[in-house]
């Protein structure tokens, strides 16, 4: 004789299991993680926990990418200036951008001669596909991918066109969001500077022939 409903019960035990785990794991987590702000899950944990957004947020890995941002050398809260701007308007980001959402105007000095700075830099956020090519291929570490996701709003025609002022963030901000990349960049720059100094020292020394 076939007994109907056994499979149904078995299915329900699984649901019950998930239900119970959600409490045991949940309680543990409540004491461990509560109000930490940024949370992440290790695969050793059982089950899966709910991120209590907006009180807590998932920890974003450093490579996380949403929209591009321009970097200038300075502190948070400072205004970017052409001197501190890292971008040289070389245009590689605009050339490598798959949906072609980056628009750059090269700056000119008083006499009308082009200088290696950008005077206008526009990103159409509604076309950008967050691919990260601009940051990956920029030779000057001038454009990076921001981590901000809370961008929703009721308007798009003005606010979704990011201009050069909206795009610029300080190196201090960048160092906070990308600590590893920042450390690498500093190390590389230091090494380059040392190499340059060594080369310069060598040059200034009188050669054996002279």
């Amino acid at each position: 004789m076939k007994i109907y409903g056994l499979e149904l019960l078995r299915g329900l035990t699984i649901t019950l299991g998930h239900f119970i785990t959600s409490y045991t794991v949940g309680f543990k987590r409540t004491f461990k993680n509560r109000l930490r702000g940024r949370v992440s899950q290790h695969p050793d944990d059982k089950g899966i926990f709910t991120v209590q957004y907006p009180e807590e947020r998932l920890k974003t890995p450093e490579r996380f990418r949403v929209l591009p941002m321009l970097i200038f050398d300075g502190k948070k809260g400072e205004q970017w200036k052409q001197e501190t701007e890292r971008c040289t308007a070389c245009g590689i980001c605009a050339k490598v951008c798959p949906p072609q959402c980056i628009w750059i105007v090269q700056a000119k000095d008083a006499s009308g001669k082009a200088v290696p700075k950008a005077s206008e830099f526009t990103i159409d956020v509604d076309v950008c596909m967050n691919c990260g090519y601009c940051a990956e291929y920029c030779p000057f570490d001038a454009i990076k991918m921001d981590h901000t996701i809370e961008l929703g709003g009721g308007e798009r025609h003005q606010s979704h066109l990011f201009d050069i002022n909206r795009l610029h963030v300080s190196t201090e901000y960048y160092a906070e969001t990308h600590p590893k990349a920042w450390a690498e960049e500093q190390a590389r720059k230091k090494a380059d500077a040392e190499k340059k100094a060594a080369a310069a020292a060598k040059k200034s020394e009188p050669g054996p022939a002279a």
Partner: peptide, 16 residues
């Protein structure tokens, strides 16, 4: 009513 930039926006962006 609300536009979310991003491609694709993460679930947290949708919650926002």
């Amino acid at each position: 009513d609300v536009y979310i930039p991003g491609c694709p926006p993460t679930p947290q962006a949708l919650l926002h």
